[in-house]
Design a protein around this nucleic acid. Structure first.
Lengths: 226, 226, 226, 226
DNA sequence: AATGAATGAGAATTCATTCAT
DNA sequence: TATGAATGAATTCTCATTCAT
């Protein structure tokens, strides 16, 4: 369905080299964006010749896409650990928020790459990547929202898919807010200069927001009481 | 503090021409992104010479920034009308959601431009623009959250700024989800192919989500009952 | 039917510059062939920047094609004068041969370009150029062969189109033999080292060949005698 | 006088491999031309490594030249059979024409390679190749033209070498006209769309043309009659 | 003998910006 | 004010050739 994005030569290459090339690519693409990154520079920084780079990748875009996949895997690996646990929904949410905060620094390059594809417009690629990237958290979120509903932990009248979407939107935005310059600034505009240092406050308030969002409104409760 | 982004000549120019130049810029930048848009093409499409373009703007980036400002004003104008009303918080939220849905098509160029700055990394500009752009909604949201709190419409233990941030994050994501290709795809991954057509469902569920988020959790309610 | 091969900017350009660009192109393409000629070098030699070159021509190929058209016009101009005369067929043939010989030196660049398209393989272009180039001489040759037939100057049982084809083949080969290195060598292999200097001999023998070819064979004559 | 165009390793190599390498080279060079053919691709298609290719040949050009030699041998083998016969000149001509027509398809790769050297400009190589390639037919043609003259089959006042040259020019052009795209188009411009299917017509008319060319003109005949 | 990874000079093309008119 | 011709640095990508194994 989707062609591979590197040539066989890259698969045959020494794993250390593969790692270097991808990490260098991620460095450059995340720092400069796709257009401003220079594949010749990436090759040089990775310690290989430009000719070899093109033995590995058909085009600059293919290199970018492989870097992106690498970034996505890494991000999924990190949240994957959290998602696998068997916790109740709010415990899980807390773990996710803390992971986002702790991983913000080391993962910032990955998150920036992810933010980069957000502006993609190429029909086919967009569809493919949205699918590939989003369905992982989609599965996880709808999964445990369904369970939470069954357990009576969240309001029974909610649409799980939309609630998963809102949930992910909040976490995604939070991730960007710890990573990407513009979102960071927006974050401080809303929450003050120190918000980036006060992780506990963010955890506390977001949990508060989610907890009530997921459960019942006062009025619903009242109705139930009757 | 922040230099102007156009030369005096542009301010002196015929308003109709100013409008044409900015709208053409918005067209191109939103369709192609900053890097891929071509200032010579923009000049041609706007019906002025490239020489004149550089009489109006120092650099391509300055043109972009002015287009951005225009886009932002437009977006603010639209939501401004909603924000000025005197409604209760959820009524306001509903109006905002509906506005986002209805304005998605006509405003898509503006939203795309907004999405474009999201990847900016230039220290000074980022700060300036985040301030300029976000503080409008920030003011509005914190304003009516404060009032809602005073009125007892939302839980008294919430931090208004963070709650405003969460609220805006949800609306911003929703706006992108009706406009930008990648976010659109992500939207359908989460909520199904038809979600883009079912505005009512989105309104209903998001209001449900917000209503509870803003108010009390079941447990809080229980505590209060005691 | 066939798009123009230069941009409007080239048509607007100073005629002297147009001439310089085309002649420089013809120089380089005829000396090195299409692939080996370097458009950046052509620009430099023509005294314009490479950027301007690309304001004039979409691609290197378009530049080549315009050079080719120029070369063809020049070649047609030269033989055109001969073809317009009202001479009997062999007088005309003689004039053509002598023109080829005399124009060999000054026209060699044009002939080499013509020889260059001979290896073209691109479906559409080939058809277009063969048409454009060959139909001029085709018209001329079939025209005066028809008249010659009517006048009884050539055998009545010949197919004019094929005879025109043979006639042109001989002249074309001769033209290449005075111009292109390989054909030159072939010429001397067949006719001796000095053939390139002995124009009279070539005229004499080719006329002999054509004269009989066009008229009757001995046997035909015999038949007629009976 | 002329260095060999392959290294000893190639001579020592397995004949089947030699054949594969040369045929693959001929495939690629005839399809794409010298410049556009890629020696790495040729190596891969021939099933050997690029390293080995350079153990066999000093340069891409040497490989090309050996392919060319192979192509020439093949072409000579085919017409050699015809030339060896003991026929009268027009019978021979007919056989040659028919051979060209019949061999057009299977030999097209060889003819294209031959056409390719036509644009060569390298002093030394051109001389060497013209010699090597053309002298075969030269010998044959002058040989049987001399005999024909002795037998009184052709006009006694002709220069055999030039007549051989004209003869070969017609056949060479015909060969290209059945093979190379541009010449094919030229052929149909002159003789109509269907000429490529009507072999008999071509045979008939070219024989007519040659027959008279080789023999006497009407006037000569008249002179002789007196 | 054989491999194929590696090189890097070189070529086509783009586009932000300048400047003479 | 207005034009648009002109610039040339920069970038992507190719491919003949080398060389360590």
């Amino acid at each position: 369905m989707e062609r591979k994005h590197c040539k066989p030569a890259f698969e045959r290459a020494d794993p250390a080299r593969r790692e270097t090339v991808l990490q260098t690519g991620i460095d450059e693409f995340s720092a400069l964006g796709f257009e401003n990154a220079n594949i010749n520079v990436i090759a040089k920084k990775a310690g290989i010749s430009i000719g070899l780079m093109y033995k590995y990748f058909e085009t600059k875009e293919d290199l970018f896409i492989l870097c992106l996949e690498e970034a996505i895997s890494e991000l999924h690996r990190v949240i994957g650990e959290v998602l696998e646990s068997d916790d109740k929904i709010l415990v899980r949410a807390e773990k996710l928020i803390r992971t986002i905060q702790e991983a913000a620094e080391p993962n910032s390059r990955y998150v920036k790459l992810y933010n980069e594809i957000t502006k993609m417009s190429d029909e086919k690629n967009v569809r493919y990547y949205a699918d590939r990237i989003e369905s992982v958290s989609y599965e996880a979120y709808t999964g445990f929202l369904a369970r939470a509903k069954a357990d009576g932990d969240i309001r029974p009248d909610c649409d799980e898919r939309l609630f998963a979407f809102f949930f992910d939107s909040l976490l995604m935005t939070l991730q960007f807010s710890y990573t990407c310059d513009y979102y960071k600034e927006r974050f401080t505009v809303y929450c003050g200069e120190d918000i980036l240092e006060d992780n506990e406050k963010v955890v506390r308030e977001l949990l508060k927001f989610l907890e009530s969002a997921f459960t019942f409104s006062r009025e619903d409760v009242k109705k139930l009481e009757n």
